[in-house]
């Protein structure tokens, strides 16, 4: 990537959610470490893919990045400004630069508002962006930009299909011309053919408007298609990070390897079907993550050292951009499948 400073710079981000126990006293039973020390960078116009299984903290991270939730500690710098410390009108102004697209287009649109009212809401909240007289025209332009017929602006969300609803949500997110879109599983609720339409929309919007994406998905093939760089999360931590080619062709963390091998290829092959060895067990509870390396309980390579010391995110000299948090990283030849 270029040497320009990142437009979004996240350092050691932590979010702990206290979990209350039952009973009258409602004592704090512990804390859910949804995001536990994440550092990321995003440059102008690039797409950072964020993959991981449910409970790995990717959605919590999305809410932190868009200032829906406040981090417990760590910093988020948006154009050099500490987003996590902003309040009031300065926070509101900063929100224009980074917008969130939700997973479920059935839940993210107010069912009682027309499409026009939904897409216009950003202008109503940020009054200085555009004079009231221009709102209708701007809404029409936005709908057109995302491939919807502006004549349908008076309809209600329930009159649209899932894919069209996601387009409405994207139009709303684009209204304030943000430089960054954080997309939290934006296509996983959609059918395959619709999913492809939305993925293409994201690509063309990036080309047209130069938006940078933080693209969160559990579907590795979608991320491979759309992302420039990828970060793999496991239990609140980034365990591997690098360019798409580096991570997909040559995973260094055993978890990435297992994740990639678990993705079913759309090509029938009876021989491979029998041979595939997946990852055993479930993700441990983020209430009580394992000591040392968090992946060790499911890792075929785990050794004593893994329980004792948490491996740092480390990039070898040969691949300075490709970091993995593992004491015993995979070697180039050995992909995840050969383990176990």
């Amino acid at each position: 990537m270029t040497d320009a400073p990142p437009i979004l710079d996240v350092r050691d981000l932590v979010k702990h959610v206290p979990v209350r126990g039952g009973g009258l006293l409602r004592r704090t039973a512990g804390s859910l470490r949804t995001v536990d020390g994440v550092s990321l960078e995003l440059r102008r116009g690039e797409t950072l893919g964020l993959v991981g299984e449910s409970g790995c903290g990717k959605s919590s991270l999305a809410r932190l990045l868009t200032a829906v939730d406040r981090p417990t500690s760590g910093e988020i710098r948006l154009f050099g400004e500490r987003l996590d410390q902003l309040r009031g009108s300065r926070l509101r102004a900063a929100r224009r630069h980074i917008k969130l697209v939700f997973q479920d287009p059935y839940a993210s649109l107010d069912p009682r508002m027309t499409v026009e009212a939904i897409v216009r809401e950003p202008f109503v909240i940020h009054r200085d962006v555009a004079p009231r007289a221009d709102h209708r025209r701007l809404v029409g332009e936005l709908l057109e930009l995302v491939g919807l017929n502006p004549d349908h602006a008076r309809r209600y969300p329930h009159q649209f299909s899932g894919g069209q609803r996601q387009r409405i949500a994207i139009a709303r997110a684009l209204a304030l011309r943000p430089e960054i879109l954080v997309c939290d599983e934006p296509v996983s609720a959609l059918d395959v053919s619709v999913q492809a339409q939305i993925v293409n929309l994201f690509s063309s919007l990036q080309k047209e408007l130069g938006i940078a994406y933080v693209f969160i998905a559990h579907d590795l093939s979608v991320v491979e298609h759309i992302a420039d760089r990828v970060a793999v999360m496991y239990l609140g931590r980034v365990v591997e990070q690098g360019t798409v080619e580096e991570v997909y062709d040559n995973p260094r963390h055993p978890y990435t390897g297992a994740l990639l091998s678990a993705v079913p290829d759309p090509v029938p092959d009876p021989a491979r079907r029998a041979a595939r060895v997946g990852l055993q067990g479930d993700v441990p509870s983020p209430l009580d993550p394992p000591s040392g390396c968090r992946f060790r309980t499911r890792c075929p390579r785990a050794a004593d050292e893994c329980a004792a010391h948490e491996p740092p995110l480390h990039a070898p000299a040969a691949e300075p951009g490709h970091a993995a948090a593992c004491h015993f990283p995979l070697q180039p030849a050995a992909r995840g499948t050969a383990e176990a």
Partner: peptide
């Protein structure tokens, strides 16, 4: 064919996916 083409796979990077228009 359209269902198969809509799946992002290795090598589809940078190209738009073949999509089925309409519903």
């Amino acid at each position: 064919r359209a269902l198969l083409d809509a799946i992002p796979r290795r090598g589809s990077r940078g190209r738009p996916l073949n999509v089925l228009q309409g519903a």
